[in-house]
């Protein structure tokens, strides 16, 4: 028996909007720790890892570890039917091939049940070891989204270079080149508006902008984004989900031929 009640149902709506274009089908894993997902895109270039900790749910009952295969497009369609202020409860019986999403309006005057078929998904689970990164950049998530969108109108790839001066995002295309430098800026009114650079070693890596633009669909989940960079390792683009966990995207770098 599984029963997860999330008062801030909009979080789950936002999570689905963040991952549904990158991944078609995925297994959601439920354990005492929380509700999690790990999945790769169809070309195995990017990986998404989601964790919503059990403590973040108003009610969390998971009698035994279960894995529920879902089509994320269909799940997003169902969650779109929930109001932004609705409380969302996920329910599944042991051995059942369906999951039920229950949406309650804040005043309890409207209650809806949506039942979705589960699927059997053969998915590979990757072990992601702790790593030391050469540089970690924290910046406003809206600023990062803007940069990715702007650069993708010029080129297909972005070179991210971190030095003591700041973090530079560069691209080149048929019409020309673009460079955007964000300097460390910790003297802002609100901490979420700061750009903070922790650098152990300068690093410069090339990535496909198409994937970054997909990751920025998670922007509504967090005011800030963290980029963890190391040469010869995938970049980690992390959006913290307040009080609950995170959504992390891993993208392998492009290598010069």
């Amino acid at each position: 028996m599984l029963e997860l009640r999330l008062v801030q149902g909009s979080l789950l709506k936002k999570v689905l909007e963040a991952v549904k274009d990158l991944v078609n089908d995925a297994n959601f894993d439920c354990s005492a720790t929380g509700f999690s997902l790990q999945a790769m895109d169809s070309s195995h270039v990017a990986l998404v890892a989601l964790l919503l900790r059990s403590e973040g749910f108003e009610h969390y009952r998971c009698d035994r570890n279960i894995s529920m295969g879902m089509n994320l497009g269909n799940m997003a369609k169902m969650l779109k039917c929930a109001g932004n202020d609705d409380i969302i409860t996920l329910k599944a019986d042991d051995g059942s091939d369906v999951v039920t999403f229950m949406f309650e309006s804040p005043t309890q005057d409207k209650i809806a049940d949506f039942e979705m078929k589960l699927m059997d998904i053969d998915s590979e689970h990757l072990g992601i070891p702790e790593a030391e990164y050469h540089a970690i950049v924290r910046m406003p998530s809206s600023e990062f989204a803007r940069i990715c969108k702007d650069l993708s109108s010029i080129g297909d790839t972005v070179v991210i270079s971190v030095t003591k001066e700041g973090v530079k995002f560069s691209t080149r295309g048929d019409i020309g080149t673009a460079n955007i430098v964000c300097r460390q800026n910790t003297t802002v009114d609100k901490p979420e508006e700061a750009t903070v650079i922790e650098m152990n070693e300068p690093v410069s890596l090339t990535f496909a902008l198409r994937y970054f633009n997909s990751f920025t669909k998670a922007t509504p989940l967090s005011n800030t984004v963290t980029l963890s960079l190391s040469s010869e390792l995938p970049v980690v683009v992390e959006y913290k989900i307040a009080e609950m966990g995170y959504i992390r995207f891993y993208l392998a770098p492009k290598i010069e031929d």
Partner: peptide, 14 residues
């Protein structure tokens, strides 16, 4: 040019 590496080249199946 540059080529795209797969994420599975960095992380192993568990």
């Amino acid at each position: 040019g540059s080529s795209q590496t797969s994420i599975t080249e960095f992380y192993r199946s568990t």
